[in-house]
């Protein structure tokens, strides 16, 4: 009988994705294009938030959008109607975007002509958190109807994001969502995170968010 041997592998499972993400970031920094990855659960308001952001920034920055959807074009059509460069990525059942998919999306955009690209990731609080997309900043939305306990249930998502947008603040008075408790839970996982309370519906708080975004994008592209 053949002898059993032990082979040391010592390799990170995500190393290939991480390598693609790293080279994407190098390219973005050379091309001076700020890329953000927007994540949330389905229905938290990613598309509405993007539309509101475009309304406020499309005359100041050249913006492109990458829309990931499992199998539809609805969001991409709404965004393209705003007159910005939009690429639709059908993930074909994939629950998240990874760096190679984003690279593919970027290949059909003229990134040298864009200051800011927003990726609308697949609606899901679990899988997108595990895969580095190559974005410069990760942004997530938590909407008030989802509840203030979400940081406890999806800790990884809250720990990988640079910004948390608490959306649907116009609904707060109808809910028992505890903003302070939520803040404390989030900050426990991630102290560097910036939190903005917004309503994509009424426009409340949107300016603080777009000011932050504009500031970050401007300093990145120099």
């Amino acid at each position: 009988m053949e002898e059993v041997r032990l082979i040391e592998v010592k390799e990170d499972i995500m190393s290939d994705n991480d390598a693609v993400a790293k080279s994407l970031r190098e390219r973005l920094s050379k091309e001076k294009t700020f890329l953000i990855n927007l994540m949330s659960s389905p229905g938290a308001g990613k598309t509405s938030l993007i539309l509101k952001t475009l309304e406020s920034l499309k005359n100041e920055l050249r913006i492109g959008i990458i829309e990931a959807d499992i199998d539809s074009m609805v969001d991409a059509e709404k965004v393209a109607a705003q007159g910005v460069a939009t690429v639709q990525l059908r993930t074909g059942g994939f629950c998240h975007l990874d760096a190679s998919m984003v690279e593919k999306g970027l290949s059909s955009m003229d990134i040298g002509e864009l200051d800011l690209i927003i990726i609308e990731n697949v609606g899901n609080l679990v899988c997108p958190a595990e895969f580095d997309t190559g974005a410069i900043k990760n942004v997530m939305i938590l909407s008030v109807p989802e509840g203030d306990d979400k940081p406890l249930k999806y800790p990884l998502m809250f720990s990988v994001c640079d910004v948390l947008l608490v959306n649907k603040m116009d609904y707060l008075h109808l809910s028992d969502f505890d903003v302070e408790a939520m803040r404390e839970r989030v900050l426990n996982l991630n102290r560097q995170i910036e939190i903005f309370e917004v309503s994509a519906k009424t426009g409340e708080g949107i300016e603080a968010w777009t000011n932050w975004l504009k500031g970050e994008a401007t300093s990145f592209i120099g």
Binding site: L6, I7, E8, V9, D12, I13, S159
Partner: peptide, 17 residues
């Protein structure tokens, strides 16, 4: 406090013949 581990995704080794 700051997270120092818990996000690993690693293949250590494998037994083979």
């Amino acid at each position: 406090s700051t997270l120092i581990s818990g996000r690993e995704y690693y293949i250590k080794d494998m037994e083979v013949i």
